[in-house]
Simulated assay, not measured.
Amino acid sequence: MSIANLFQKQSTVFSFEVFPPKRNSPIDTIYKTLDELQDLKPDFISVTYNAGGSGDPAKQPTCEIASIIKEKYGIPPLAHLTCVNSTREEISIVLDELKAKGVEDILALRGDINPDVPPKTDFAHASDLITFIKGQSGFSLSGACYPEGHCECADVVSDIHNLRKKVDAGAKHLISQLFFDNSAFYSFVERARIAGIDVPIEAGIMPVVNKNQIERMVSLCGASLPPKFTKMISRYDGHPEALRDAGIAYAVDQIVDLISNGVDGIHLYTMNNPYVARKISESISSLRTV
């Protein structure tokens, strides 16, 4: 069953994102994280892809970790795949590897542009990658979306137009970038539905557990910070345990509101932190069954 089909089986899909270990760490260091996440019974787990101009696409750990999630843990995997630093030939190598490992679901992304690595020219946009993969049988495709608009896009109307291209190209499911103001997400979903985008849209939630994390993520994605959130950060800055717990509580509050308003799914950016994932999962466990 493709991940897109999960949304036909239950009211709120609940999923996690993990990332591969650092290059100098053995891949089996991810097992401890996955061991604990498995107990939380996510509907699927996505695995990020770190191209970064690093070379051989066949050596990317995403394929292996996605295979481990499926074969060892019995959880559907969603493999991220970025294209900004890849040629068609390199993407084909990764697709062959995913197919060989039985991984059928791909989150197709353009990827961040590295100022130190000139982008390649085969794929300008994620929609180009989706079109390319769609031409090869055996994969179900997901795409990313941006509740407050992509930081490189002129306005939210243009952003929705670009998102429609992804869906028209073959994306059957969307995962949102992180956000801290649910009203921004609801407005985005309304714009998407008016534009005829009728695929499931998962809300991407990142629990903020330290100040450096939020500064880094906001600089990358440009998410706005509502007063309630900034007051929390200011109040507990310098108190790591208190800020961690406050960040978990803020994320739970977001999720409760989203589920109450009928969100298609919640995609939790775990940052490979099982403790945070467990605290949030336990807080909303009864909501997932209603």
Rank of each mutant, 00 (worst) to 15 (best):
S11R: 15
E17G: 00
K22L: 15
I27M: 08
I27Y: 00
L37G: 14
D39T: 14
D43L: 06
I45Y: 08
I45V: 12
T48A: 12
T48L: 11
Y49F: 15
G53H: 01
A58L: 05
A66E: 06
S67N: 13
K70Y: 03
K70V: 00
E71M: 07
I75R: 00
I75S: 02
T82Q: 02
I91F: 03
I91R: 01
E97A: 09
L98M: 07
A108D: 06
P115L: 03
P115H: 13
P119T: 02
T131P: 00
T131F: 04
G138W: 01
F139D: 03
F139G: 07
L141G: 01
S142R: 04
G143F: 07
C145Y: 13
E148S: 13
H150L: 04
C151R: 12
A154N: 11
D155G: 02
V156E: 06
V157N: 12
R164A: 11
K165L: 03
V167K: 06
A169R: 01
G170C: 05
A171S: 05
A184P: 00
Y186H: 11
F188G: 03
I194V: 14
I197N: 09
D198W: 09
A203V: 05
N212F: 09
N212T: 07
N212D: 13
P227E: 13
K228S: 14
K231L: 10
R235H: 12
R235C: 01
R235K: 12
P240A: 15
A242C: 05
A242R: 13
A246S: 05
V252W: 10
I259N: 07
Y269I: 05
P274T: 09
K279I: 07
E282V: 12
R288S: 09
